[in-house]
Design a protein around this nucleic acid. Structure first.
Lengths: 226, 226
DNA sequence: CCAAGAATACCCCATTCGGGTGATTTACTG
DNA sequence: CAGTAAATCACCCGAATGGGGTATTCTTGG
């Protein structure tokens, strides 16, 4: 008996880019801890493999591309978790937009890795996920933390009701003012000239009827602007 | 010239457990990419070092324990981000409860690592964060993803009993600052010399660890002081 | 298509602020 | 009683602020 064999993690790949898929498959096969099964180039073809499989030979972790011909990786993930909630899915993609990240999390992905992730890290992530954790690429993690800090609903409410007719640019500047930053710091953060920042602030003061940062901060906070 | 020297990342450690702190410091010092500065056993002692530092010798990344004697690591992180928003903080702890994770994220931590994280991963995380990402231990990441899926109702910050040890006089002055008044106006209202008002405000800043009216107003309002 | 608002950038100038230093008086605490 | 903390007042200096203009894009809605 090879005890190692029984412990190998069954991994699947759903990825439409031929070269990338083959390369990834090869790389993963080098790892004796993994067993690569059900490699598909679309969600549909993956499901056909899945449907023909026995319960005890299901993949444990799936590396899922998001942009696929036909059904998207997010939709596919939703379906998979619907049928087999114990199967873990890692989104494996080049996309970093909030929308796709958020959707992926909501449909039940346990990982979100960028395609430039080193293969060692990918394997490591697979193991971590099997151990009950989750894996997120650093740049994605940053966005996820932002989502926790500023839940999606909150943003929508704010953009609707602008308290003082502040323009988007002014609102942005005001937020920085509330953070206690100086004009120079704000300018650097927003990639604008300090004079522009100043102009915006002057206009903000007029609209809010104040004439100092302290007063602006107070008003902004009292109205939940920032 | 050693070009590597100029690129070293300045890392600080705030950790009360003597042995652990020393061990961690030693380990990190082995990495030539890092420069360990400001090692403290409490938030208070860390702040005293920080307050005495020049702008260009501030730590870039701080490894922050959560459970500390006196001010907690979460509270300390809040203060630090208040003063130096560009400084990154990694919570480095044994706790895995949702409450502390959530609070840490909300006060602005860019990383949350468990203390059993391999030193290589810690160093790696520091680099990732400097590169604009975030780092989260797998088991924590799982909880964070759950938070995104099931947003927690954002409750108002816990109102501390004694906000900042402000003296009665200082508290009174602070209220006027929050009103958006200038030193001169405050002086007239309180029948004091403008110099005195100024002195009080300077002391307030020191106690609150801020350095501008806007920041003081924000902190005061967030803590319901005024 | 054009007027109007938004966003951008810049100048001048007086005032205010933030930070450092130092001194005196009062008041409480050990 | 000695030491300490709070409160008060004072000055210097450089940086930041606020308030007044001016001016050039760039959208955008009518």
């Amino acid at each position: 008996m090879d005890t190692e064999q029984t412990k190998r993690i069954r991994v699947s790949i759903v990825e439409d880019h031929d070269i990338f898929r083959k390369r990834l498959t090869e790389l993963l096969q080098f790892y004796s801890e993994l067993e690569v099964i059900f490699v598909a180039d679309s969600a549909e073809s993956f499901f056909s493999k899945l449907d023909r499989a026995n319960e005890d030979e299901l993949p444990e972790v799936i590396l899922m591309d998001i942009e696929l011909p036909g059904m998207s990786g997010i939709e596919a993930t939703f379906q998979i978790k619907q049928q087999h909630s114990e199967v873990e899915v890692i989104m494996f993609t080049v996309f970093e937009d909030d929308e796709r990240i958020f959707e992926s999390i909501n449909v039940g992905a346990s990982g979100y890795l960028l395609k430039d992730t080193a293969i060692d890290m990918v394997v490591n992530s697979i193991k971590e996920i099997k151990a009950g954790g989750s894996a997120i690429s650093p740049s994605i993690a940053k966005k996820v933390l932002d989502m926790v800090k500023n839940p999606i609903e909150k943003k929508q409410e704010n953009t609707e009701e602008v308290p003082f007719d502040l323009s988007p640019a002014e609102l942005k500047i005001l937020e920085h003012v509330v953070e206690g930053k100086t004009n120079k710091q704000i300018a650097e953060d927003v990639f604008l000239s300090p004079w522009t920042v100043k102009t915006h602030i002057k206009n903000i003061y007029k609209k809010m009827h104040v004439n100092s940062r302290a007063a602006a901060v107070r008003l902004a906070l009292k109205r939940n602007i920032a």
